[in-house]
Every structure is written in structure tokens, then in C-alpha cells.
């Protein structure tokens, strides 16, 4: 069964169409990467899934239950980390988690046990200060802890790593990896290396539509292609090389040979040596998620 199903969801703010038919589904025990540029509609989609936003059309099911605007019962099985989480500055982390736990209806013994577990998971267990003195990264970690408190079936993280330094990012990704044992995770991001690191399934969002949805293996299968990038020392040599290799294209001052095999590579090197053409750089470039992303969104 899919934990989350989004079908043809649309939303306009005034005359501005933000979502124009977003569809994707998240299976159980999966880390789902929700990728898109800033302003592509990621946060809007997530808010719609949480019933914080009234959609104009389409359906959203969480754990088999329809999401409705306002007080939606489906929120009981979701944990959510907003893009900029805001907490009550006058509480400490433990008190905040206790408040969250009690709201979800956990009994006080369970809340205490679960809070300790989660604070350890996110590395805030030795922190007794009030939240008002927390750094951005600490707030983000507390945000993940509060999202996990009621053992949700679906964890929704909105840009959990975007505002963090590389160390903070790695910590958050490790926490997400640890959390996926217990729950499905959907997280939005525009940092593709994060997706490659931990996701098993992805959707690309572009212009308010899902431009691609599939497993990470499907993406790996799409890769395959390697390209060669050649920078010449003298730009006057460009035409000679292009004449010998018609497939080459001049992009940003570099000669790019798409779909180049190992054989093409040796031929090129032999040609350069024979013609005595000095180069500054020759690079084999494996296409990555970014290229596929660019291809999908048509750039």
C-alpha cells in the first residue's frame, strides 16, 4: 500500500497558478526525494498534503484516508518539519517534545521515554538551555525530533538541509537514514547530491507539475552516457578539431563530445597528439542527477 498518494493536485493563488496537476505516490519504507527549483511548488504541495492549504482540485490520500482542509484526521500519522521551524523560545527541547507528545495523545511515561530516545538520535540530549538560544541547525534537529515523536507512518521534511553547512547537512542526512527504518520519508530539496545519497525514489517538480517520477535505479539506468569535455589552449584550433569530429559541440568555450565511448576517447587523444594541438584540460564527464534533472525540465 502507498503511504501517500497525490493525484492531479492543483492550486492557484489569485491568478498565479502554483500547482497544475501534481501526481506522485510514496510506497511504504521508502525515502522519497521531492526535487525542484525554488518556487517550483514543493512547499505548497507539502502544505496541501498536511491540510494546511485548500487545494483547487485533485485528491490526496494519506494512509488510505482522504485529506481535508482544516482539521484533517490524516495528520495523526504524519510527522512534519517545516522549512523554517519555529518553536516556543521559553521552553527547552524536552518540554517542547513533551507538549508535542501530549497533543498526539501519548501517555506521559511513553512521552518521556520517546523524548529521550529522539533527543539522543538528534544529538540534543545534553542540551538543557531554552530554545531561544538555539542555532539554525539545532532547531532543524529539534524539528526532526518533534516530527518523529508519535512514530508517524510518513515523515515530511521541507528542505531539511538547505540552510545548513556541510557538517550539519551530513548529520541531518544520517538522522533521516536512521529514521527510515521506522517510517517512510518524503523530503524536498534542491540539493541533488543529498538525494543521490539517501533516496530510493524521486519526483521532479517543475512549473507546478511532476515532470518525472521513478525509482533511483531508473535514473541510474538513464545515466549510462559519458561525455568528454575538452578545453583547448588555443581557440584557433577549435575548427580543426570540429572538422575531424563532427559530433563535437562548442559549449561555453569547451568542446563537448556527447555519448563518447572509450574508443572515441583514444581516437581523440591520438588525433590531438598527431596534430600537436595543445590542450589545457580533457575530462570524462558522467551524467549525474543534475543532468537528468536539467534534461527533464528542458534546460
Amino acid at each position: 500500500m502507498n503511504v501517500l498518494e497525490v493525484r492531479e493536485v492543483s492550486k492557484s493563488f489569485g491568478s498565479k497558478k502554483v500547482l497544475g496537476g501534481v501526481s506522485f505516490s510514496v510506497p511504504e519504507n521508502c525515502v522519497f526525494g521531492f526535487i525542484g527549483r525554488n518556487g517550483a511548488g514543493k512547499t505548497t504541495t507539502m502544505r496541501a498534503v498536511l491540510g494546511l492549504l485548500e487545494t483547487d482540485g485533485g485528491e490526496i490520500d494519506v494512509c488510505g484516508q482522504r485529506v481535508s482542509y482544516g482539521n484533517t484526521p490524516t495528520n495523526g500519522c504524519i510527522g512534519y518539519l517545516p522549512d523554517v521551524p519555529e518553536f516556543y523560545g521559553y521552553m527547552n527541547a524536552r518540554e517542547y517534545l513533551a507538549l508535542c507528545g501530549r497533543i498526539t495523545g501519548m501517555d506521559s511515561g511513553d512521552v518521556r521515554k520517546r523524548s529521550s530516545e529522539l533527543l539522543e538520535l538528534v544529538g540534543l540530549d545534553k542540551e538543557n538551555h531554552r530554545i531561544k538560544g538555539y542555532s539554525r541547525g539545532m532547531k532543524q534537529r529539534l524539528g526532526i525530533a518533534q516530527a518523529l515523536i508519535n512514530r508517524p507512518k510518513l515523515l515530511i521534511l521541507d528542505e531539511p538541509t538547505s540552510a545548513l553547512d556541510p557538517v550539519g547537512r551530513k548529520e541531518i542526512l544520517d538522522i533521516i537514514s536512521a529514521a527510515k527504518e521506522q517510517t517512510s520519508v518524503i523530503f524536498s530539496t534542491h540539493i541533488l547530491s543529498d538525494v543521490e545519497r539517501i533516496c530510493s525514489r524521486v519526483a521532479f517538480l517543475e512549473g507546478g507539475r511532476t515532470a518525472f517520477e521513478g525509482g533511483i535505479d531508473e535514473i541510474r539506468a538513464m545515466k549510462g552516457d559519458t561525455a568528454l569535455e575538452l578545453s583547448l589552449a588555443r581557440s584557433s584550433d577549435t575548427d580543426r578539431v570540429k572538422a575531424a569530429f563532427p559530433a563535437a559541440e562548442l559549449i561555453d568555450g569547451k568542446l563537448v563530445f556527447p555519448k563518447a565511448s572509450d574508443r572515441d576517447c583514444s581516437e581523440l587523444m591520438a588525433f590531438l597528439a598527431a596534430q600537436n594541438i595543445p590542450i589545457t584540460r580533457l575530462e570524462r564527464h558522467e551524467s549525474d542527477l543534475e543532468d537528468i534533472f536539467m534534461e527533464v525540465i528542458g534546460k
Binding site: N75, G76, V84, E86, F87, Q146, I149
Partner: peptide
């Protein structure tokens, strides 16, 4: 400020 969002999304 958005301080209610984490709590509202918990039901």
C-alpha cells in the same frame, strides 16, 4: 510566526 504549524500537523 508559524509556531502553531508543528502542533496543528500533529492533530
Amino acid at each position: 510566526k508559524g509556531t502553531l504549524i508543528p502542533l496543528l500537523t500533529k492533530g
